[in-house]
Design a protein around this nucleic acid. Structure first.
Length: 763
DNA sequence: GTGCCTGCTCACGGG
DNA sequence: GAGCAGGCAC
């Protein structure tokens, strides 16, 4: 009896085929992750491959985390030597080591799309391009496409001969790359492109990694683009031990340059490829699989295949149409609570709510929170795009290295120091002229033509230098806290005394918590500022720590790829939302086909129970929009659909009776989005006086003594937190400048908080 | 240089 | 609905 006995014939064949190129065409739920992980074990234990020589690439951080876990469980000793990572994090790791050979410093920063946009704005200004006519976003999109295809600015210029707009974009591209380099920064696409450049320019570096990664596996292969394919080809060229796993029906990243030819032409590029098809589904009931199959069958451009299962028939797919998106969200939240609390059929973590766009999470969040149903939103870059978070990160980046102009400029006058836009742009031009960094140029504000600002700027420079010195004896979260205090950033927010400012403070607190999490969980080396910044640059979801907690998962269908849940709610199934308006009106039927594949992915996430819902009317961009039932819903084989549900009207009455906030709840729905601060809004509503009092108490706290007096609670007390709700204080630990309070919250479990930030209030 | 108001634009997905 | 650029008054 071996661990491989549990695999079916095809799975075994894939597992045991270790030498030479291997293409696994794996349908949804056909156990491809099992094959990949077992294959890794087989390589190590039977073939005798050193774990150090294995590379496994996944598409999302979540997938990488899950694969890592499964591999660790199966392999045991030595598994940590295996590289399991996303394309992007693999490239970061390589570039941190060798990018100096391309003339960058190894402590480069990574620009997110907002940073890129800011930079492009500058570039356009410099090139006299009217961004009303030619939008930055459009230019960046074109540049990104060029990078996906590995076109240099030069190549782009050649290709756009005779095309005025194309030529302009090519100019922007060149200028943009120069600016990035001057800032010692890379954007997301550059991570891939520069790694390829490195490999092409430095054969011995390539050789090193070819020797290192003798066995390479790529998951979600259908979503790789040309650049990623080139990268893998380079790495696998020497040993040819490349195993890719993909499913053309689940290709959902065409918008990002995914090139389906990478699958279709694999056998040509890698001769002697062995191709194995996995067609038995182990995940879903027959009816769910039938629903998925009947939808995807409507795609014309696809390889015909037959996914089948030996699983039970299962329940029919439930379909419900509601009057409004409020009703829909409300129903889902109630239904989840009922399933878990009353019927005990499922735990919260068995359940996922999927939707097409991130914006749809707001209503669900609101209702789940109201019913105290624990939930977590996966993905959604919201948190790290918030102004206050970006500000604090910009401070940390500047302290870490002044090279990143975008970061320095972001905070030079935040909070206000009387350094205006005119001075900033003069210094920026001067820096470009002198070929020095913006931060260096700050010392020459006079020469740059802004002599009057020099005094204020010197104060800023000195402050940054002070923080750099402090770094030596402060931990990261202490440094962050110190920055917030000394710059007056927090004080400015506290003085505002608006709901919005309080939300921002809560978000900052969340970031501090994340820093502490990082400090506690970084295993390889010492926690460093650069290390933390690197992590947040690539990971949008640091919250992987509470994995054992029981919560409902909310995410977009894109984010759900590769995952499975016993019970799935698929909401917002309306024409114009899913499939998106853009795909319907583009005139290109293949756009709708990509949406249909996305729908196929959504349906195949469900193992036992699938509820599909839509709303007749929904608030979109400030106005009510009426929609029809999604064409995809109508494509589901009627045999497997139960559309008799009419619980919504009944249910609504019930809600009005038991929900004292329901009138104001509607108003609350229209509050600004804030995945991380919603509870705060409700808390304000309930006890504004308490909340204000706790804000006031915090204001004067700067020294430990003050603070000690200011702590209105002790171990054993029940306290209330604006975000996490109520809980029990289990420990108070004295820290150099603050107290660390451990609280067991009723809803979110144990959290360690800092007294100066956590506005804990005794109840 | 700052703060406030207005009008415009964008509303799909990921690292 | 919300963020942002541009215009304007101070």
């Amino acid at each position: 009896m071996s661990i491989y006995d549990s695999l079916n014939n095809m799975q075994q064949e894939a597992t045991f085929h270790t030498d030479g190129p291997l293409l696994i065409l794996a349908g949804a739920g056909s156990g491809k992750t099992r094959v990949l992980t077992h294959r890794i074990v087989y390589l190590i234990e039977e073939v005798g491959v050193n774990p150090y020589n294995i590379l496994a690439i996944t598409f999302t951080n979540k997938a990488a985390g899950e694969m890592r876990e499964r591999v660790d469980q199966l392999v045991g000793f030595g598994s940590e030597a295996i590289w399991v990572s996303t394309f992007h994090s693999m490239c970061v790791r390589i570039l941190r080591r060798y990018i100096d050979r391309l003339g960058y410093e190894t402590n480069f920063t990574i620009y997110d799309s907002d940073d890129s946009k800011t930079l492009m704005k500058d570039v356009c200004k410099r090139l006299n391009i009217d961004t009303k006519m030619l939008r930055e976003k459009f230019i960046l999109g074109e540049i990104s496409r060029a990078k996906d295809e590995l076109w240099s600015p030069e190549k782009m210029r050649e290709r756009s001969a005779g095309d005025f707009q194309g030529a302009q974009i090519a100019r922007c591209y060149r200028e943009y790359q120069e600016e990035l380099k001057r800032n010692n920064a890379l954007d997301f696409d550059d991570l891939i492109v520069k790694t390829i450049e490195l490999f092409q320019k430095e054969p011995e570096v390539l050789n090193y990694y070819q020797e290192r990664f003798q066995y390479i596996m790529v998951d979600e292969y259908q979503d790789t683009n040309t650049a990623q394919f080139e990268l893998i080809s380079l790495l696998a060229k020497k040993y040819q031990n490349l195993c890719v796993v993909g499913d053309d029906d689940q290709s959902i990243y065409k918008f990002r340059g995914a090139n389906i030819k990478n699958i279709l032409n694999f056998e040509q590029v890698f001769p002697n490829t062995r191709t194995i098809k996995l067609e038995q589904n182990y995940r879903s009931t027959k009816r769910i699989l039938q629903a998925a199959n009947s939808v995807i069958a409507n795609n014309v451009g696809r390889k015909d295949k037959a996914l089948w299962t030996e699983n039970d028939e299962g329940d029919k797919v439930r379909f419900l149409q509601f009057d409004s998106a409020y009703d829909e969200a409300d129903y889902i939240a109630h239904n989840i609570k009922e399933e878990v609390m009353d019927q005990g059929n499922y735990t919260y973590s068995d359940i996922a709510c999927l939707y097409r766009t991130n914006a749809q999470s707001r209503l669900l969040e609101e209702r789940l929170m109201f019913l105290s149903v624990p939930y977590k939103i996966v993905g959604g870059v919201n948190f790290y795009q918030r102004k206050e978070i970006k500000d604090l990160l910009a401070y940390l980046k500047t302290v870490d290295s002044g090279n990143d102009e975008i970061a320095v400029r972001r905070i030079l006058n935040v909070p206000r120091r009387g350094i205006g836009a005119t001075s900033i742009s003069k210094i920026s031009d001067y820096a470009a002229q002198q070929r020095i960094t913006f931060f260096e140029a700050l010392s020459f504000a006079g020469d740059a033509g802004a002599p009057r600002a020099q005094g204020k700027i010197d104060g800023f420079i000195e402050m940054i230098h002070d923080f750099r010195k402090e770094q030596e004896f402060l931990s990261l979260h202490e440094l962050a806290t110190d920055i917030l205090e000394k710059t007056g950033y927090l004080a400015a927010l506290r003085d505002e005394k608006t709901d919005e400012a309080r939300d921002r403070i809560a978000n900052i607190e969340e970031l501090i918590n994340k820093i502490v999490d990082y400090e506690n969980n970084v295993d390889e080396e010492e926690p460093t500022l650069s290390g933390f910044l690197e992590e947040v640059a690539l990971i949008s979801d640091l919250d992987r720590l509470n994995e054992e907690d029981d919560y409902v998962t909310l995410m977009t269908v894109h984010a759900a790829k590769g995952l499975e849940f016993p019970q799935v709610y698929l909401s917002g199934m309306e024409d114009g939302l899913f499939p998106s308006y853009m795909s319907i009106t583009s005139g290109d039927e293949s756009d709708v086909e990509e949406e249909r594949r996305l729908c196929y992915v959504a349906i195949t996430r469900a193992m036992e129970s699938l509820t599909v819902s839509c709303a007749k009317s929904r608030m979109v961009n400030g106005e009510w929009r009426n929609s029809n039932i999604s064409r995809f819903v109508l494509e589901i084989d009627p045999e497997v659909v139960d559309a008799s549900g009419r619980g919504m009207a009944l249910h609504r009455r019930q809600v009005l009776e038991e929900d004292p906030l329901s009138s104001s709840a509607k108003a609350a729905f229209s509050r600004k989005p804030g995945n991380y601060t919603k509870q705060a809004s409700f808390e304000h509503r309930e006890k504004p006086a308490d909340f204000l009092a706790s804000m006031g108490v915090q204001k004067g706290m700067s020294s430990v003594n003050n603070l000690e007096e200011g702590l209105s609670y002790q171990v054993g007390d029940r306290v209330k937190h604006i975000k996490f709700g109520q809980g029990l204080v289990t420990e108070i630990k004295k820290m150099p400048k603050d107290y660390q309070v451990t609280v067991e919250f009723d809803q979110v479990g144990v959290r360690k908080l800092f007294a100066a930030f956590a506005k804990l209030k005794k109840i």
